[in-house]
């Protein structure tokens, strides 16, 4: 088990190194001009030269790479050309908003994807099953930005039930920053009015971000449960006269839990790194919208920083899920 863990950890380090290497060289070969992007097109030659020396852009590529790697090991991602702040500090500020939104989207996906998938499996080939499958197919094909503007138009503009883009009503005083997650910070500040408002602000973006995952999860849960329900031990349990509810909860769900857990882990990873469109539409200050603004202004150090953190998060979550697997499934040995 320990050897397996070490091997996986080494593998994680390799992938993160690879992502950093690739990100660095992609930023090198692209024709966009970061200096013009940072200084504007009216900068004088002397200014440009001074800037090149200050940022190390005058050195050969391999020197730049070794400097970059050196800083990276110390957790320094360099400075953003756009915000002129340390990228690591930027990401610390932006990441919690993404985490908050992702967790809300996961809650939505689990709340709707799990029971509907289960229902479809239990009532296989009935109207319920066909309905769930059709919805899942449509959910998997819907462009989420359209879903976003449609939901904003209906629930915010027309009905006025929910707030539009942003995290908190402009008339409310934001709580002191502790976790940078609005809903948690308002709770810590014991400002319940702001807490309710922050939750209301979360609903639409969470539905939009979670829609695809809900569809995927429902499909996955359905297929897993159908497979599990066809197993011999389920038939045995039923033959013993155990109530159907007990069979499902105790025997079927338990055995279907692992593949479902894997999907949830993968979803968490892809949501954390895939909130770009949702965050942009809802003016949500997370790393997705940070990446978008950075890419627009050709701020490649910042884009590299986001890429790296996202890659690390993704690989880390996958590792975590694999380890959980090893703990929970006695059939798998990692000797």
């Amino acid at each position: 088990m320990l050897a397996y863990l070490l091997r996986r950890l080494g593998y994680l380090i390799f992938v993160v190194w690879g992502v950093s290497f690739a990100a660095f060289f992609i930023a090198q070969v692209v024709p966009g001009d970061p200096i013009a992007a940072a200084l504007g097109s009216n900068a004088r030659d002397a200014q440009i030269e001074a800037y090149r020396i200050k940022t190390g852009l005058d050195k050969p590529v391999w020197v730049q790479y070794s400097r970059y790697l050196n800083r990276l090991v110390k957790g320094d991602l360099g400075n953003s050309l756009r915000t002129r702040r340390a990228i690591a500090a930027d990401l610390r500020d932006f990441f919690p908003a993404t985490l908050e939104l992702t967790l809300a989207a996961m809650v939505f996906a689990i709340l709707f994807g799990l029971p509907t998938g289960l229902l479809a499996a239990l009532y296989k080939d009935t109207v319920i099953d066909v309905g769930v499958r059709s919805l899942a197919l449509i959910g998997g094909a819907t462009p989420i930005y359209w879903l976003a503007i449609l939901l904003i138009s209906i629930f915010h503009t027309k009905l006025g039930w929910l707030p539009g883009p942003g995290r908190l009503d402009a008339f409310l005083i934001p709580p002191p920053e502790v976790t940078n997650m609005m809903s948690i910070d308002t709770l810590i500040a014991k400002d319940f009015e702001a807490f309710i408002d922050s939750i209301r602000h979360l609903i639409l973006p969470a539905i939009v971000l979670g829609a695809f995952s809900t569809a995927l999860l429902a499909r996955m849960v359905r297929n897993t449960m159908i497979e599990v329900l066809a197993q011999d031990y389920i038939r045995t349990a039923r033959a013993k006269g155990i109530s159907e509810r007990w069979v499902i909860v105790k025997h079927a769900l338990r055995n279907g839990a692992l593949p479902i857990l894997t999907v949830l882990g993968n979803l968490l990873g892809s949501l954390l790194t895939g909130a770009v469109l949702t965050e942009t539409i809802f003016s949500w200050p997370g790393i997705g919208s940070y990446a978008t603004s950075s890419a627009i202004s050709l701020d490649f150090p910042a884009v590299m920083g986001v890429t790296l953190v996202a890659g690390l998060t993704y690989a880390g979550i996958n590792l975590f899920v694999d380890i959980l697997y090893a703990f929970f499934d006695p059939r798998i040995s990692y000797a």
């Binding site: 690879g18 992502v19 690739a22 692209v30 895939g274 770009v276 690989a315």
Partner: peptide
């Protein structure tokens, strides 16, 4: 391993960066 590295990239962010740069 090179394939794994590309799989670990956040797809949309990478695509965005490439398309912004080109």
């Amino acid at each position: 391993r090179i394939t794994d590295i590309f799989l670990a990239f956040p797809a949309l962010i990478l695509a965005m960066a490439i398309s912004a740069a080109l």
